[in-house]
Write a protein that binds this DNA or RNA. Structure first.
Length: 295
DNA sequence: TACCAGGAGAGCG
DNA sequence: CGCTCTCATGGT
């Protein structure tokens, strides 16, 4: 183990940090000049993309950086994942357009709570709600001088002790009772998030869907972004649009047919494929509505 | 202003 | 199963 230090470097290629942190899987990263600032667990972190990898900086000395490598998934064999995608034209276009887009490995509770709040919200708004929730209910974490105060994501226990109307003041609207009930269930020890990853995908999904405010889409987000199920395939409005437009033009597939299609077409890393299609669609939408974003 | 947002859940035929 | 409606709030 190296001497404790305030910074380190992860050597990794084909890693588009900005796209990854901005692709609607995590909601706590803000741009800071040419870097990104966020909180991972109980630590303030600043990340910067460099030529051959990612430079990381913390507020307190770190001896073992595995927690951050695990979060960033810097060690995954990216090429072998891409190689499992079907070589159809839409998939090739999405991979070409979003090369370097990765999946993070997030904390299950933070991921679950965040996506309960995501229902029919734009990514920008989810960020705002989560930021407000952390500021009001999260433990302060040390940040370097000159940086704005940083907060950890609130624990289930902390949220469980809040009231619905208090949570509604974080602008989460009708999602408040769902977040509160789920926080209380987890805080009471009646739902073991750590145990999920030992189940089969189908069973883990149906366990998650017992929680209020968690349907198939949000369950798949938690399984894909936090629990290590690369085959989970969150079906949101953008993916539905992408599948219909790219794979079923001028047809009218039922949701059942679409579900059957994704289960057989995208392979063992369907979740990665999903993230590419999602970001591909969203990118084109943003460029159309706000052309100034184009570089 | 009108429409929509990384949905879920209930009611209905 | 498949459709429709509501829920709260704010961005574009």
């Amino acid at each position: 183990m190296a001497n404790p230090a305030l910074s380190t470097f992860f050597a990794v290629r084909d890693y588009d940090l900005a796209t990854t942190l901005n692709s609607g899987q995590a909601f706590r990263w803000l741009p800071d000049g040419d870097a990104w600032v966020g909180v991972v667990g109980k630590r303030w972190v600043r990340l910067r993309a460099e030529r051959n990898g990612i430079a990381a900086e913390t507020a307190e000395p770190i001896g073992d950086w595995r927690w951050l490598a695990d979060y960033l998934q810097t060690y995954v064999d990216f090429d072998s994942i891409l190689a499992t995608f079907s070589g159809d034209a839409p998939m090739r276009a999405a991979v070409t357009a979003c090369r370097g887009l990765r999946l993070l490995r997030q904390d299950p509770w933070e991921c679950l709570a965040s996506f309960i709040l995501s229902a029919t919200k734009q990514v920008v708004q989810i960020r705002q709600i989560v930021a407000l929730l952390c500021k009001r209910y999260g433990e302060p974490v040390p940040a370097p001088r000159g940086q704005p105060p940083a907060f950890a994501f609130p624990t289930p226990e902390k949220l469980a002790s809040a009231t619905e109307s208090q949570l509604r003041r974080c602008k989460m609207g009708f999602r408040a009772p769902n977040l509160l009930a789920t926080a209380r269930t987890v805080a009471r020890g009646e739902f073991d998030l750590e145990r999920l990853r030992h189940l089969r995908l189908r069973q883990a999904r149906s366990e998650l869907m017992k929680l209020p405010g968690v349907g198939p889409k949000i369950a798949d987000c938690v399984l894909l972004f936090a629990c290590g199920y690369p085959r989970a395939f969150p079906m949101d409005v953008w993916i539905l649009k992408a599948l219909r437009q790219l794979y079923f033009p001028r047809r009218r597939p039922t949701s059942g047919q679409l579900r059957q299609f994704v289960e057989t077409h995208f392979g063992p890393y369907a979740g990665y494929a999903q993230q590419y299609l999602f970001h591909y669609m969203r990118m084109h939408h943003l460029l159309r509505s706000r052309p100034a974003l184009r570089e």
